[in-house]
Design a protein around this nucleic acid. Structure first.
Lengths: 213, 213
DNA sequence: CCTTTCAGTGAACATCCGTACACTGAAACC
DNA sequence: GGTTTCAGTGTACGGATGTTCACTGAAAGG
């Protein structure tokens, strides 16, 4: 295993099987939860012997935390994309959902992982995800503070709103990428629901203009 | 095992160990996900031999579906409680959260189970939960249709709103009852956040009156 | 060029897993 | 009161699990 064309430094090879382990995990996590992952099946899929796993991670949990890390790198990259070309406030939702939709395909497994394990079985992973989502919530809150009409809001108010949006996003992302959303039509429907629900939060029930049909 | 004071009909005894199996599952599900449950640990906790499990369920999955069923009996009972004494619209959120909070203690394990397995690992259970939540969402939509100010809303609009509320409730319920919410202060905080966020959806960002601090 | 490092090997382990099978003994039934 | 039903027993199995340990062979380094 792991012999390649010609030149490849030792740490390149190591990094490659490490990557393969992470990918195998993300792959298997599409069909089961982290708590039921098996080290042996993982290494079998990668094509190495079970014990070689320990050359890369000291335990399955440690590998899980690595997955959390890189998943949130994806998520933050997405947020940065939205923030980069400062969209006008009235287009913020549209732009955000567009970016989400685009990034979703590139990082399906990551978003699926977050959605699945957010409330899933294994404590340290659940906690790591909760922590990262908390950070993102607070970042979003400070972003929102600069929006017209929200300058006077207190930290607590902004936090509430940020929580609503983050929740909505995580749930919608998972539903768009999780099992049952293979059909593009279904996915587009979820995407539209997300747009509308986000708008509904902004204008409120009182200010909602019924959808034309 | 399973010998009792005096008279106890055969099906009573059977029902009792069935109940014990379900309870043992709910108990263990506080610390792991359904996908990693083990028939042997389950039966050990109940005090019966592994093979006796099959006298009650044909598989772990079937038992999981039974858990979904009884969990939604709890949830529907809760909703009926809110609906029973028709609360005035402006108190609906307060009343709902109060009922939720009260029912939560009585059915912790059920709500924890739903929150955990909603996006969790095992397909048939995930689908059963999604189906039941869909029903509840539609019920709530028809309830909302009778509210003053919403009589003119179309089915799609009502569905959007119902989705927001159901989502908010499931997430908040899990956070109130899941790991990390043992501290009553933490729980009360989550409860208050839920109240505020629900109100924010109703009045919208535009109509939000900043919290006094 | 010779030595060190170390990713991956392969056998062995104790333990857990689900399930098949023949069984027992007491409640249920006629 | 004799027969049937059936929840729970006990053994036994084949296979999967995580982890140990001493190992190999090629790349890295002096």
């Amino acid at each position: 295993m792991t012999t390649q064309p010609a030149t490849e430094t030792r740490q390149e090879r190591k990094e490659r099987t490490r990557r393969a382990l992470l990918d195998a995990a993300l792959d298997q996590l599409a069909e089961e939860s982290f708590g039921s992952l098996s080290l042996r099946r993982l290494t079998k899929q990668v094509g190495i012997v079970p014990t070689a796993f320990y050359r890369h991670f000291s335990s399955l949990d440690e590998m899980g935390l690595a997955l959390v890390d890189e998943s949130f790198v994806s998520l933050r990259a997405m947020i940065r994309d939205v923030r980069r070309d400062q969209p006008p406030p009235d287009e913020l939702i549209e732009r955000s959902v567009d970016v989400l939709s685009r990034q979703l395909d590139a990082n399906m497994a990551h978003f699926r992982f977050i959605g699945r394990e957010r409330y899933g079985g294994v404590a340290p992973i659940r906690e790591a995800i909760a922590h990262e989502l908390g950070l993102i919530e607070r970042e979003l809150a400070t972003d929102l503070a600069r929006m017209p009409g929200l300058e006077a809001w207190g930290a607590a108010d902004l936090q509430l709103l940020a929580g609503l949006f983050v929740n909505l996003m995580v749930v919608a992302a998972y539903e768009m990428v999780g099992p049952g959303a293979e059909d593009p039509a279904v996915r587009r429907e979820i995407e539209e629901t997300l747009r509308h629900q986000a708008r509904m939060i902004v204008v409120g029930v009182a200010g909602w203009q019924p959808l034309e049909r």
